[in-house]
Amino acid sequence: MNPILLAPLFLLVAPLFGGLLTGVDRVISARMQGRVGPPVLQPFYDLGKLLQKDVRPVNPIVEPLLLGHVVFMALSGAMIVGGVDLLFTAFVFALAALLLVLAAGSVNSPYSFTGAERELIVLLASEPFFILMLAAVSKVTGESTFAGVLASPERVAPILPGIVLAFLLVATIKLRKSPFDISTSHHPHQELVRGLTSDMSGRLIGWVELAHWYESALLALFVLLLVNWSPPLALGAFLVVYFLEILVDNSTSRAKWQLVLQSTWAVTLVLAGGNVLALFLLRS
């Protein structure tokens, strides 16, 4: 299929995928807690309501920044499937995450600011991994585009076990799951009210939510890059990872930022960095 056509397809399908995933997540979480839980389509109802609500921005730049957050998050996924260099998308992805930080930081209120700073720490913790992962995938397959990696005869995951293990940890950050949900979480009961979304109302939260759906879909794309020989297997692997994340989310308490940063960097350096080192030594 033409990669230029895949990009708009991603833009359309990713929110459905991310929204459904969130819905299933909420049902499974509820079941783990002995509850029935909401309908699977609940995230779509929520988004629909948020878009219908009145909005009262605290300052004029929050909404433009949040729109930028959504657009660049969607773009980084669309760029991946559209055939733009994989490593480059890591920087677009970082820009998207940064725009959310700035939106919350611009409000300059105690809860939003603390959430923004913590999100920045989370970004600092996770960014090296994504660069290393995409670099390693390019190195293994000798390809720099999505289509190239999928068509490559090399199976990526078996060669990159360290990266795969580190992915489990870093995905916890990006999916905003406990113990790494220090900036905001899907659960209302935390010490920061809602962290970086504290001062957003109405459709502003809707934008954050929509961007997060794109982000989930992006993570699924990353799994597809690692399990490049079989898309169904990749989807299965992603769902297993996601289930594990829900399990961890429901059985751990939130960590301090120091632990988040140190543990993620240690794992990235040792597992991902070690994997990259081994790859360079064996492959060249």
Binding site: R56, V58, S198
Partner: peptide
């Protein structure tokens, strides 16, 4: 908008 209208 109201820059003083933050959650406190």
């Amino acid at each position: 908008y109201d820059v003083n209208d933050f959650y406190a």
